[in-house]
Design a protein around this nucleic acid. Sequence first.
RNA 1: GGCCCCAUGGUCAAGAGGUUAAGACACAGCCCUUUCAAGGCUGCAACGGGGGUUCGAGUCCCCCUGGGGUCACCA
Length: 490
Amino acid sequence: MERQVRTRFAPSPTGYMHIGNLRTALYEYLIAKSQNGKFILRIEDTDQERYVEGAVDVIYNTLELCGMKHDEGPDIGGPYAPYVQSQRKDTYLPYALELIEKGHAYYCFCSKERLDALRAECEKKNQTFMYDRHCLNLSKEEIEEKLRNKEPYVIRQKMPREGTTTFEDVVYGTITVDNSTLEDQILIKSDGLPTYNFANVIDDHLMNITHVVRGSEYLTSTPKYNLLYEAFGWEIPVYVHLPLIVKPDGSKISKRKGDASFEDLLQMGYLVEAIINYIALLGWSPDTNQEIFTLSELEKVFNIKNISKSPSAFDMDKLRWFNAQYIRAKTPEEFYELALPYLKKSITNKEIDLFKVSRLLHTRTEVLTEIPSKVGFFNELCDYDLNIYVHKKMKTTLENSLNSLKEALPVLEGIQDWNETSIHDSLIALVERLGIKNGQMLWPIRTAITGWEVTPGGAIEIADILGKNETLRRIRIGIERLEKALAATE
RNA sequence: GGCCCCAUGGUCAAGAGGUUAAGACACAGCCCUUUCAAGGCUGCAACGGGGGUUCGAGUCCCCCUGGGGUCACCA
């Protein structure tokens, strides 16, 4: 009987949900859920200098929004609590001491200054710096004395000097490195807290994590972790290293360069489902050609086997397309809810029925934030260039536009029950009576009542939303302006 | 620079020795049409290079090139 799959999302609380991190969380969640396993949240806050207020909430919120419910974590507890490394402070040292006992680690009293000097020297000689094991051969007495004197110390892992270390990664295969390239990395820092390198091994073991899923940037340090597992005699987890998500130019996404975080994308008008769907497919592909997946569908079809090895570029255009797909899949009511905040902000005219506007916008919106730029004409009619009445394909000119508006005015005035159907029927009847093309009537009207060359919706829908009075008022303005312009050219 | 990893259209990607080398985004064109969308159809476009192995290589091996990662008392 196989062990139950347990994966963990172990972010460092920096207050910034990197898109690559989010995808790691997603894959960890999916690996667990696709195999009826557990998804655990663990906070890796062993670097007290990087503490950011409220950062943990960003993590909770993100998981919550995305629907990735963790089975164990700081907020909900679990059989392996606590799930915050700073709260597990005291669990690591004994393990480090055990390693010293076994000869796999040692005390190091070297000062930061000494190390910096060493590093600088190496740099000057163009060599790769590696700790010189200065403290490896300290005698028992020397060590005890230094400890008694409360000299600050770290504990370092003692790497084998010869041979190679090999580990298996389920996506990258077998990876072997020369032990001589492995540095005696620090396990316990001088503040008593473990480094990530140590804490992740201890906690993953203690928490029974079966699949260690993380970005491929950890690939090169994995041999060191393996050596740790071996030193303790612990079972080595399944390693799942994920290819990086990069920018279109191939460079990596970074907070410092102002690259969009998950929160930023939401603010930019992207839907959670679209983001999740898109990043699920950045580095993994299903067995079919299906592209639209809900989280629960992913939970069923996700597999480690189809994770790719090469880095993938984050393509905003494709995300945008996914977003548009999700927007179109909403019901008119759902879309209205989503659009409302943007509509309220941009349409100040209280006469306007925002639901009707949202229906116009539904298939014309790819990202929520583009809504305001599309509806300004509902507020007021601005001055517009009369040349927009002239449209070759519509076969409209200034003259026939004026004529159409003049013909339309009394017809529209005569409509008692102002709605799309009545406007449509009256106008189409007029077109037939005049023997002109639809566009020759509807283009000038739309132009006159919006003043915009391009609008969501056509003359009829917009006239309906604007209301009878405002529509007539705008048409009269159009007539007046066209008459004036034509008179001037004669 | 050392070490590790990666390499199919501009992008995401199928492909697990024999295919006309899928599909999607983007782009272009056409249809529909009262503008713009949406929708439908069509098109453009790829195995980085060189050696092997094999009857046969995008698929396996080697070299080169290119890209990325990593070399902290950060994670």
